[in-house]
Design a protein around this nucleic acid. Structure first.
Lengths: 227, 227
DNA sequence: TGATGTGAAGCGGTTCACAGCC
DNA sequence: GGCTGTGAACCGCTTCACATCA
């Protein structure tokens, strides 16, 4: 094992490995080789070994990995053995949908509070989660020990909201507003930009190579083909 | 301009550039240099030029890019000048939230139908969008000319749903189920895995370097430090 | 023998730096 | 002079291939 920077691509894959292992465990398997895992879930075995090796020597040569053992390691590495409290800013459709998104609980996150500026919404509940006035953000964060913020407000408010979040001392943010926010200091931001994903699909549907399989010359006035 | 494979990273950035240009246009700007764009929106000017150059010579040396002109080009490249029809499978919280997600309209997508297997939901409306029986998927897709599918069902049903989608001839899919689906043939799938994003935040909060700034040795029994 | 852990090679994307053009 | 378009250098991630070990 080496002490070096772990790429986010690696940690993302750890999440996937953990799910695969849960799958296998549910089927009663006890050990699995990197090759077995790779074949079954369409991954690359060398990559699995390398990803895991960043964090320790979890495998046994000639045998593979003990599934339960590796699950425990991954759970610990990913911090999924600790509870986290989530505050969602923006009690619109998306925010309220996220408030009881079952995926949170699955990863040991629980939604403690929703926030909004709309006086009509404040005090209402979405499932068991109350909607608080955004003005009471800092104190509510302290009260509920919120350590993860979710931004679910329109783009034009996202930067201001981020400011409030970082001021309150929260270090982990998930941003759904269609504007890539940059992290300042030691704050981690995950941007989930649905607009980009959509427009990527739009590009795929529109691109010339999808029209009767022929590569068409773009019709920009000044374009030319080299080679 | 070269004829070569365009990476998805590039097309994702085109979406961002387009938004930046819309911003600038709203402020009344007429031209912008790659450097000006980069400085203002925290991008890399060489990358902007390279990304754009894949599609044509849109700039003018010594001047920069004409904003309106470039907006038109990007809109066309991304296929945002054409309407698309979306069908959402899964009329749970997430599915219904997506049904009137304003981001769709913004990118020229309109949600035509929701689908569910729950007989109690079928026939109901979410905003203006009706919930149809998943059994009538193929015919409803034809009827409404749906060309984009959104998977918003639990993980265990996602693979089956994808099967139905591809059988119906749809070529673009957005998957919100926490299981990475692979594209078959010429179908494009965008996986939006919130669980991975969450666990990435969890990792960030848990990782040793975040504890009093010290790199701690992992306490796996067999771990060791090389070098 | 069988599977891990890991240098080395390969590959794709980003950044640099500058020739070429307005 | 200013800015684009682009080959070349660079960098980081992935894959290969194999020494190593149970």
């Amino acid at each position: 094992m080496k002490v070096e920077k772990i790429s986010e691509l690696t940690t993302n894959r750890l999440s996937i490995y953990l799910r695969c292992l849960n799958d296998l465990a549910a089927q009663g398997a006890k050990t699995v080789s990197s090759d077995g895992l790779a074949k079954k879930f369409h991954l690359n075995s060398a990559q699995i070994r390398k990803d895991l090796a960043y964090f320790g020597e979890f495998g046994v040569r000639g045998v593979g990995y003990y599934i339960d053992d590796l699950r425990k390691h991954l759970t610990k590495i990913l911090g999924l053995d600790k509870k986290h409290c989530v505050g969602i800013i923006g009690a619109g459709r998306l925010g309220t949908a996220l408030a009881d998104y079952y995926g949170f609980a699955q990863s040991n996150f629980s939604v403690a509070a929703l926030f909004d500026a709309d006086q009509d919404k404040i005090g209402q509940k979405v499932g068991t989660v109350e909607i608080f006035d955004i003005k009471s953000f800092a104190e509510t964060v302290k009260k509920y020990k919120i350590d993860v913020a979710v931004i679910a407000v329109p783009a034009e408010f996202a930067q201001d909201v981020l400011e409030q979040i970082t001021n309150s001392g929260i270090k982990a943010v998930m941003n759904f507003a269609p504007i890539p926010l940059r992290a300042k200091g030691d704050v981690k931001i995950k941007n989930v930009d649905l607009t980009i994903s959509l427009e990527s699909l739009s590009y795929f549907l529109a691109k010339p190579s999808n029209k009767n399989g022929k590569i068409l010359k773009p019709n920009a006035a000044k374009s030319r083909i080299k080679q």
